[in-house]
Amino acid sequence: MSDGSSADAGWYPDAQGEMRYWDGHAWTAHTASNYIHAQKPVDQVVPASTGLGIGEVVTKPWTKRWQVWLVVACVTFLGIGAIGNATTPDSDSDAQPKPTETVEPAQASEQPATEPTSTPVVLLFMTDQKDGDSWVASDGKEYRLGLVNTPEANEKCGKEAAAFTRKFIASGFEADVYATDTYGRSVAEVFNKEGKSLNVALAKSGLGDDRYLDEFRHENPELALELDSAFLDSSVHDCKTTAAPVPLVEKPAKTTAPKSDCMAGYSPCLPIRADMNCPEIGHPVTVTGSDPYRLDRDGDGTGCD
């Protein structure tokens, strides 16, 4: 600028409106299009050579400044690119939405589930009764009730105890065997079809006693405690107040002493002699002793037959 312009060095719009560098004295060849460091002021003091006069302010509407539109376009382009990158999947596999993994419940079996069933109980039955506390069962074993005792069959209340046991297990029984006695019998607590204990029932009825309870308590402590309570609550059975039953085995009839004039060992009476023969006697005799007359030749107990 040779006219003595006082404008400072800087970037100013030239006569064509392009930003050009003013070095403080004259315009240079550097324009905004070929120099990346060009400044883009909105309002600049224009050198005098532009025809507008030094010191005048060039004021253009911001919408007509191409630099503004260039910046807006760049920002818009970059913004669209950033949005596209954020929304565009990286690969085809990412384009497809990933299904939510769910844990499928186990497929039901084709066959309907069956509830577990308990093992069927096989009941035993009495086949040969010995007395109220022992018998042979349908499995071939002989059972003895544990820790409770009943009278023998020929003793007082033995018949009633045997009948009580038969009736109690008439529909079958289960045996909880826990020992074997010296006779090889299975010692057990016996339950009827309804699950009731025969051992305890006999104790409560008054037909059973505790003869062996203390001696063998250690073999089944739980049953022993139940029997302790049962014996305390036991009743007196009617059979204990009645007359003793007739024994099963009859006592032999008493024999009378032979007469003083009869030979011992014969019936009917034979006279006492040194010897006698069958022809003299004339009838059969029963030999009950040593047969001093040797009348029973064949040893069948009858002489002179």
Rank of each mutant, 00 (worst) to 15 (best):
residue 291 D to E: 04
residue 205 S to K: 09
residue 82 A to Y: 03
residue 196 K to G: 01
residue 165 T to E: 13
residue 248 L to V: 05
residue 189 E to H: 07
residue 288 T to N: 11
residue 269 C to T: 00
residue 155 E to A: 11
residue 285 V to T: 04
residue 250 E to V: 00
residue 46 V to C: 13
residue 51 G to W: 11
residue 11 W to N: 05
residue 78 L to D: 01
residue 199 N to Q: 10
residue 29 A to E: 14
residue 89 P to Y: 00
residue 169 I to S: 11
residue 237 H to P: 12
residue 5 S to H: 07
residue 72 V to T: 01
residue 195 G to A: 07
residue 279 P to D: 12
residue 301 G to N: 08
residue 114 T to E: 15
residue 278 C to V: 02
residue 190 V to N: 13
residue 224 A to L: 06
residue 234 S to E: 12
residue 3 D to G: 13
residue 154 N to M: 01
residue 225 L to Q: 15
residue 123 L to S: 09
residue 65 R to Q: 03
residue 208 G to Y: 10
residue 138 S to P: 06
residue 216 F to H: 10
residue 61 P to I: 00
residue 174 E to W: 06
residue 180 T to E: 13
residue 45 V to Q: 15
residue 53 G to V: 05
residue 285 V to G: 08
residue 264 A to V: 13
residue 6 S to L: 09
residue 241 T to K: 15
residue 170 A to Y: 03
residue 58 V to R: 15
residue 137 A to W: 01
residue 151 P to V: 00
residue 252 P to Q: 07
residue 165 T to A: 15
residue 186 S to H: 08
residue 131 D to V: 01
residue 166 R to V: 01
residue 37 H to Y: 14
residue 105 P to H: 03
residue 157 C to L: 10
residue 246 V to E: 15
residue 81 G to V: 02
residue 63 T to A: 13
residue 163 A to H: 02
residue 56 E to D: 11
residue 124 L to A: 05
residue 9 A to L: 05
residue 34 N to C: 07
residue 39 Q to W: 04
residue 228 D to Y: 09
residue 170 A to V: 09
residue 57 V to F: 14
residue 149 N to R: 14
residue 131 D to Y: 09
residue 224 A to E: 08
residue 165 T to F: 13
residue 26 A to C: 05
residue 251 K to A: 15
residue 234 S to A: 15
residue 194 E to P: 06
residue 82 A to D: 00
residue 250 E to T: 05
residue 303 G to V: 02
residue 11 W to R: 10
residue 26 A to T: 12
residue 9 A to P: 14
residue 112 P to V: 01
residue 293 Y to N: 08
residue 250 E to D: 15
residue 90 D to L: 02
residue 6 S to I: 02
residue 166 R to P: 06
residue 86 A to W: 11
residue 202 L to A: 10
residue 166 R to M: 08
residue 262 C to W: 13
residue 223 L to M: 09
residue 70 L to F: 02
residue 253 A to F: 03
residue 262 C to K: 09
residue 226 E to L: 14
residue 249 V to N: 11
residue 50 T to K: 12
residue 262 C to T: 02
residue 196 K to F: 00
residue 39 Q to P: 12
residue 110 E to R: 12
residue 72 V to F: 07
residue 64 K to V: 01
residue 49 S to G: 14
